[in-house]
């Protein structure tokens, strides 16, 4: 049984200019001990879909889903009191903006110890020991001293590591890491990714890694889900995704990687992601897709079979029929 199972999740925001669909019919599964990466352009609904699952969206959001279960709990019918017991404990999240999720009025040490007190009921001395240990694990130099620092006294990268320490403090069953290493140097990034991987080995933690960095995805994830304009447009195991992407968007994204460049000019994806007012009738990628035809422009493609990476495309790439035509 999956640790996390989501079916047909949609999120609409009420905005001054009308309804805006940020997440559109997304399915997602994460197994115990699995690392799933979610990639896609800025604004493609990666963060919102996970925040919806954790019940952390503002009231302007309308969340609908056919199914949303975590570790045997039905997240759709659960009361908010029950949900609070799980979130931050078995289900933890590293937020995209570390500064806005730490409380500026308390030292980082107080904040992490408070989490240890509430969720694990540790005593005073144990809390201190464990807090130092956690800071050490995430590579904060001089941990005992740093516990008494306020967030504004630490660099962005240091605060990000504090957030990571807090998220893993209670040994969660599932960790959602939203751009956990963007403010960090590659050498520290490598250390954090190793730490998350080792937690997975030790505790069987499942990990959802939201990131733009295809290098991090390639080195860390087992399965990759690609989002575009709120939809999941493809999902594959990591190796075949990089080798034989089915959706034209995934393929175009990988072509844009500087490290794949063969010419001085890089391949680009012309055009921009559709917004609230120019959502196309057919395939959401059709205005930018070099393979789009009349069918693509008029009819929204349904996800293909699992063998074709659930690609939302009428003409998936790297398939026999494509190669034949």
């Amino acid at each position: 049984m999956s640790l996390l199972r989501i079916r047909n999740l949609s999120v609409d925001f009420a905005t001054a200019s009308g309804q805006f669909r940020a997440v559109d019919a997304v399915d997602q599964d994460v197994d115990t001990g699995e690392i799933l990466a979610i990639v896609g352009e800025s604004g493609s609904g990666k963060s919102v879909s996970m925040l919806a699952m954790m019940g952390l969206l503002p009231w302007t959001a309308t969340v609908t889903a056919d199914e949303m279960t975590f570790d045997g709990h039905n997240l759709l019918t659960m009361s908010s009191a029950e949900r609070r017991k799980i979130v931050g404990n078995d289900l933890a999240m590293i937020f995209q903006e570390p500064m806005s999720s730490l409380n500026p009025c308390f030292t980082v040490g107080w904040q992490i110890k408070e989490a240890l007190r509430i969720h694990l009921g540790l005593g005073r001395a144990e809390r201190q020991t464990r807090a130092v240990e956690l800071f050490e694990q995430v590579g904060i130099p001089d941990p005992a001293k740093r516990l008494s620092a306020f967030p504004h006294q630490l660099s962005g990268g240091m605060n990000q590591r504090v957030m990571i320490a807090m998220a893993i403090a209670c040994k969660p069953k599932l960790l959602i890491a939203d751009e956990p290493t963007t403010a960090l140097d590659v050498t520290i990034q490598a250390q954090i990714l190793d730490l998350l991987a080792s937690l997975r080995e030790e505790t069987g933690m499942g990990l959802v890694l939201i990131t733009h960095d295809m290098g991090v995805v390639a080195e860390t994830a087992e399965r990759v889900s690609v989002q575009y304009a709120g939809q999941k447009i493809e999902e594959q195991a990591v190796e075949p995704l990089f080798k034989t992407p089915y959706h034209p968007y995934t393929s175009a994204l990988l072509d844009a990687l500087p490290e794949r460049a063969t010419e001085r000019l890089l391949p680009t994806i012309p055009g921009v992601v559709p917004g609230q007012f120019d959502r196309p009738a057919g395939c959401l990628f059709s205005p930018r897709c070099k393979f789009a035809d009349a069918t693509c422009k008029s009819t929204a493609p349904k996800p293909c079979s699992a063998e074709l990476g659930h690609a939302r495309c009428h003409y998936p790439l790297n398939t026999d029929q494509r190669i034949a035509s």
Binding site: V186, A190, D213, G215, A218, T220, F242, R260
Partner: peptide, 8 residues
């Protein structure tokens, strides 16, 4: 330490 976009 620079991650490479090549899982293989």
């Amino acid at each position: 330490a620079t991650p490479r976009a090549n899982p293989a």
